[in-house]
């Protein structure tokens, strides 16, 4: 595969899916900057493995798997950022973050332990089955069910309290 065709296909994929993928990252970590970093890390890995993954049609599943399996709360290396200048001084610096209207439900999601949060995102937001969620997280289906049960109970309490 030539570099030009890899870049073109990759760019098309990023343009089409980055909003959805970054929302997944944000749902998991609750911070847009961190979500940007997580997505960037995942996309760089995707670029390296692009020919194989694109051929198999597994681009999105691959990125999603990296996002949900990232050690979100603390990790030693992934925060090494590739950026051309210092924060706030770069001509391509993004706009300031908008005032996000985070709902009580989103805050409740963030208050869940990470394992439960991952299950909620995959199972109840992205619509994966119990078995698919278990496979993606590398845990037993029974564990998915118990995480799901506890998490949904807490989230339901928020919904009914409104």
């Amino acid at each position: 595969m030539s570099r030009a065709s890899r870049d073109e296909e990759f760019s098309d994929f990023v343009a089409a899916r980055q909003t959805h993928l970054r929302r997944i990252a944000y749902a998991l970590c609750g911070d847009w900057h961190r979500a940007d970093d997580l997505l960037q890390t995942a996309l760089v890995k995707l670029y390296v493995a692009w020919p194989r993954l694109h051929r198999d049609g597994r681009e999105e599943a691959y990125v999603r798997q990296i996002l949900v399996q990232a050690n979100i709360d603390e990790s030693r290396r992934p925060w090494r950022r590739e950026r051309p200048g210092l924060d706030g001084l770069d001509p391509s610096a993004r706009d300031p973050l908008p005032v996000e209207e985070r709902s009580a439900l989103f805050d409740a999601l963030q208050s869940l332990p990470l394992a439960q949060r991952r299950v909620v995102v995959l199972r109840h937001w992205l619509g994966l089955s119990v078995e698919e969620t278990a496979r993606e997280l590398g845990i037993a289906p029974g564990t998915v069910k118990s995480h799901s049960s506890r998490a949904v109970e807490r989230l339901q309490a928020v919904l009914t309290a409104r």
């Binding site: 343009a15 944000y26 960037q40 670029y47 390296v48 908008p98 209207e101 909620v120 937001w125 919904l159």
Partner: peptide, 26 residues
């Protein structure tokens, strides 16, 4: 719950230019 979660937050700020990701990928 799916619908409520989907509506619980927006799409965030502008994305990084794809060129930045392409450069890091290369």
């Amino acid at each position: 719950l799916h619908d409520e979660l989907d509506a619980a937050f927006g799409s965030g700020p502008a994305h990084r230019p794809v060129e930045v990701t392409l450069g890091a990928g290369r």
